[in-house]
Amino acid sequence: MIEDCVKIKLNPVITEIVSRFGRDTVEALETIRLFKEQKVHLIFDQENFDTFKDDGELILSIYESVSHADNESRGRNIQIGHRH
């Protein structure tokens, strides 16, 4: 998908939530930077964040970090549930 966005210039790319955009904070920020360099417009719907209007890697990294921690916690809870 990333290659298609860059090559074909799919604009805008709309993602429902930051946590669905990347596996971890570093990967998400690297992809966001690539999209910005290539002028690919990225919108995170739930967070109401638009990379063309909002310039805040710090805010995005916080969103991503919180989402990542939430996903890990949910995964641990599921594993505990399976064991019981």
Rank of each mutant, 00 (worst) to 15 (best):
residue 3 E to N: 12
residue 7 K to M: 09
residue 19 S to Q: 03
residue 28 A to Y: 02
residue 77 N to I: 15
residue 71 N to M: 03
residue 47 E to C: 03
residue 76 R to V: 07
residue 7 K to I: 06
residue 32 I to D: 14
residue 19 S to T: 00
residue 77 N to A: 13
residue 45 D to G: 01
residue 3 E to T: 07
residue 11 N to I: 11
residue 35 F to D: 08
residue 62 I to P: 15
residue 37 E to D: 14
residue 9 K to Y: 08
residue 76 R to K: 13
residue 46 Q to R: 10
residue 3 E to F: 04
residue 60 L to G: 13
residue 33 R to N: 05
residue 65 S to M: 03
residue 44 F to D: 12
residue 78 I to L: 05
residue 42 L to W: 13
residue 20 R to W: 13
residue 63 Y to P: 10
residue 3 E to D: 08
residue 23 R to K: 09
residue 25 T to L: 00
residue 68 H to L: 07
residue 30 E to K: 01
residue 21 F to N: 07
residue 63 Y to Q: 10
residue 23 R to W: 02
residue 73 S to M: 11
residue 66 V to E: 05
residue 17 I to L: 07
residue 32 I to G: 12
residue 82 H to P: 04
residue 30 E to R: 04
residue 60 L to I: 14
residue 26 V to E: 12
residue 14 I to N: 09
residue 80 I to V: 14
residue 75 G to M: 15
residue 79 Q to H: 09
residue 22 G to P: 06
residue 66 V to D: 00
residue 57 E to N: 09
residue 71 N to W: 06
residue 16 E to F: 03
residue 22 G to R: 00
residue 74 R to E: 15
residue 81 G to V: 02
residue 29 L to W: 07
residue 41 H to C: 04
residue 34 L to W: 03
residue 12 P to F: 04
residue 12 P to L: 09
residue 8 I to S: 14
residue 74 R to Q: 15
residue 77 N to S: 15
residue 67 S to Q: 10
residue 2 I to Y: 11
residue 6 V to S: 05
residue 25 T to G: 00
residue 40 V to F: 01
residue 40 V to K: 02
residue 61 S to P: 03
residue 41 H to V: 08
residue 35 F to C: 11
residue 31 T to L: 03
residue 46 Q to C: 13
residue 33 R to I: 02
residue 76 R to H: 14
residue 29 L to H: 04
residue 34 L to G: 01
residue 76 R to N: 12
residue 49 F to M: 01
residue 4 D to Y: 03
residue 67 S to H: 10
residue 43 I to K: 01
residue 26 V to D: 14
residue 40 V to S: 04
residue 70 D to Q: 12
residue 82 H to E: 08
residue 48 N to Q: 01
residue 3 E to M: 09
residue 84 H to K: 00
residue 67 S to A: 12
residue 9 K to P: 01
residue 28 A to L: 13
residue 75 G to F: 15
residue 3 E to I: 05
residue 77 N to W: 11
residue 26 V to A: 14
residue 11 N to D: 03
residue 47 E to K: 00
residue 26 V to S: 13
residue 65 S to I: 08
residue 40 V to R: 06
residue 20 R to L: 15
residue 55 D to N: 10
residue 29 L to Y: 05
residue 12 P to C: 02
residue 84 H to L: 12
residue 37 E to C: 14
residue 18 V to A: 12
residue 40 V to Y: 01
residue 34 L to E: 11
residue 73 S to E: 11
residue 63 Y to F: 11
residue 38 Q to V: 01
residue 46 Q to M: 13
residue 60 L to Q: 15
residue 83 R to P: 09
residue 7 K to P: 04
residue 43 I to H: 07
residue 56 G to M: 14
residue 58 L to K: 13
residue 74 R to A: 13
residue 46 Q to H: 10
residue 46 Q to V: 11
residue 38 Q to G: 00
residue 57 E to A: 05
residue 9 K to Q: 07
residue 9 K to I: 02
residue 4 D to W: 10
residue 12 P to S: 04
residue 42 L to T: 14
residue 39 K to Y: 08
residue 68 H to A: 08
